[in-house]
């Protein structure tokens, strides 16, 4: 805080003596926070350590043997979970804060090693045989349980990613578009179903007040998967594309109204943008159907005009939401 500004305000009579004293006091006793610096170092350390150990094990697998490695992974995993169970605060369906700074990382390491453990068992000893679904389902169950039991958003994201992998889709942020084959009808249908499922979970956790703060993560993954699947569907299904577009618009309107009510700028923005893409697909398809060269000009003009319209819409929405918040 800039003391000079407050002294000026004091001279103008806008703040009283106690407020000025409080500002001066607070500024004199201000501490320098190194929270994010230390957290970054810790995260980097965990990443380097797990990566380096992985390479070390890989290079020396002939000398140490698979059982020993499995044992090491198992011990780390059990140790982490044991620590978390001992340290954790009592379970509640509300948000539970982590008891200390290491809790989150210990849980994360425990979950990562558990996934590695199951994967190793299946890869090396074929424990689950051809029941491949089981090999991904067990981590999924454990991750979901841990996310709720220990209240960890990162583990919840891992569980969602695992659920998608179990259904055959990659949903990690940078792979969502690159690693999936959206010209495959099955992937598209599965993606839409997964999206709807996650959106339902988001609604449910908000409505029933079950870990309400998880709703954002569910809705974030769900909305993106659903909308992208729908957009892909309008391109690959020649007969039912209008149906998909309709479904997309319905969901967009639903999420939009929800977000507007809760004052979430993020979801307002993405539903407006996805809705705009949907509308443009409709216009584009109609223009293509005319098979006329003039359609290119109309299309360009439409794009320019509609983009300006969306800009105005967003500016207006932002103003409305700000007013709603002030009241």
């Amino acid at each position: 805080m800039n003391i000079k500004v407050f002294e000026k305000l004091h001279a103008e009579g806008l703040i009283n003596d106690t407020a000025l004293e409080a500002v001066k006091n607070s500024e004199a006793n201000r501490l320098f926070s190194v929270h994010w610096e230390i957290k970054t170092l810790l995260y980097l350390g965990v990443l380097l350590l797990s990566g380096g150990l992985g390479i070390l094990i890989y290079k020396n697998i002939d000398t140490i043997g698979h059982q020993v490695i499995l044992l090491i992974i198992g011990v780390i995993c059990a140790g982490c979970f044991g620590y978390c169970i001992r340290q954790k605060l009592p379970f509640s369906w509300q948000q539970v804060k982590a008891p200390n700074a290491f809790f989150d990382y210990a849980l994360l390491l425990g979950c990562l090693t558990f996934v590695t453990f199951i994967g190793y068992l299946q890869f090396q000893y074929n424990t689950f045989g051809t029941a491949y679904g089981l090999a991904t389902f067990i981590p999924l169950a454990v991750l979901t349980f841990s996310a709720y039991y220990f209240d960890h958003l990162g583990v919840l994201s891992m569980a969602i990613t695992n659920l998608a992998a179990w259904m055959g889709i990659a949903v990690t942020p940078f792979q969502l578009l690159s690693a999936n084959d959206f010209s495959n009808e099955r992937i598209v249908v599965t993606g839409a179903l997964l999206g709807v499922f996650l959106l339902l979970l988001a609604t449910l956790s908000g409505w029933k007040n079950l870990k309400k703060h998880f709703a954002f993560t569910y809705q974030n993954f769900g909305a993106h998967i659903f909308f992208i699947a729908c957009i892909a569907a309008t391109f690959i299904f020649d007969s039912q594309w209008l149906l998909w577009l309709g479904a997309m618009m319905l969901v967009a309107v639903y999420i939009f109204r929800q977000a507007f009510k809760e004052g979430s700028f993020y979801f307002v923005l993405i539903t407006v943008l996805y809705g705009y893409i949907g509308l443009s697909i409709l216009v584009g398809r109609l223009l293509l159907a005319t098979q006329d060269i003039g359609a290119i000009y109309i299309g360009l003009l439409y794009m320019i005009g509609s983009a300006i319209a969306v800009i105005l819409l967003l500016i207006n929405l932002n103003k409305k939401m700000k007013h709603a918040r002030v009241q």
Binding site: G154, T161, I169, T172, P173, F174
Partner: peptide, 13 residues
């Protein structure tokens, strides 16, 4: 949580 999901990437089958 998104960074965690990104660094943990199970192979989609």
């Amino acid at each position: 949580s998104l960074i965690i999901a990104q660094t943990y990437a199970p192979v989609a089958h």
